[in-house]
């Protein structure tokens, strides 16, 4: 691979843009297809599908095999709320390779002492988010404050930016009120339905660590959606 090509690929990754490195396996020739260029490519269907799923692989063509290495930006996780669940979640998120940041304007909660593993920003979401580069499709958002004044500031832009995962803590009753507020703000039903609430996979989680596991499992399930098996039916007992 040419150093200039690797440089160009690294620049796309740095800017959080998806790209595919195409290698002709017979002769080693390579080129980079940026996400914005995929549509104009002769193999656009194949390339766009791979950008969607993030799956790398080989394609056999009449003129030889092509290896498509799909580079999606690393997943960014923004957690609103420097709460107990977030404390349990931060080191686990790091272990999963998620680029996590905690945001909470309540300075008593948002302290580096409570969060040694990840960056903490003690500001309102509307002020903190631009510093984090805002939301994109490769961002997951978990709203955990229980306080609509704080959570809603992140929910609205996350829905607009089509974050791949949006979860919000709270009971069904809390969520019903949230839906009313979002509808009043002009958000459509389809967008609202994308919010995972109550947050987390239903594993009967009780402790903060268990709730953190259920949230992270739900994020992974969304991230790996195309690899999931169809739901298994349990044998009758």
């Amino acid at each position: 691979m040419d150093l200039s090509l690797l440089s160009a690929l690294n620049a796309e990754r740095e800017a959080r843009r998806a790209a595919i490195l195409v290698t002709e396996l017979a002769n080693g020739r390579q080129r980079l297809v940026r996400e914005t260029e995929a549509e104009a490519e002769p193999m656009s269907d194949e390339l766009l599908e791979r950008l969607r799923t993030g799956r790398s692989g080989t394609v056999e063509r009449d003129d030889g095999a092509l290896f498509l290495n799909v580079h999606l930006p690393p997943v960014k996780l923004i957690v609103i709320g420097a709460v107990h669940v977030s404390q349990a979640l931060a080191p686990m998120a790091r272990e999963l390779g998620l680029d996590a940041t905690i945001v909470d304007p309540r300075t008593a909660f948002a302290t580096p002492d409570r969060f040694p593993d990840v960056p903490v920003i003690a500001e309102w979401p509307q002020d903190a988010l631009p510093k984090l580069g805002g939301f994109d499709r490769y961002t997951a958002l978990a709203c955990l404050t229980h306080d609509p004044k704080i959570d809603d500031q992140a929910l609205l832009p996350a829905l607009q930016a089509e974050c791949f995962y949006i979860g919000a803590l709270g009971s069904r009753r809390t969520h019903a009120k949230r839906i009313e507020r979002l509808e009043a703000a002009g958000i459509g039903a389809e967008a609202i339905a994308r919010i995972h609430a109550p947050i987390g996979l239903d594993i009967g989680a009780v402790t903060p660590a268990e709730i953190a596991v259920s949230i992270l499992a739900e994020i992974v399930a969304e991230q790996r959606r195309d690899r999931r098996r169809a739901p298994q039916t349990r044998p009758a007992s």
Binding site: L3, L6, S7, N10, R13
Partner: peptide
Amino acid sequence: SDILKAAE
């Protein structure tokens, strides 16, 4: 991404 940056 670290690996590719290191390679460069």
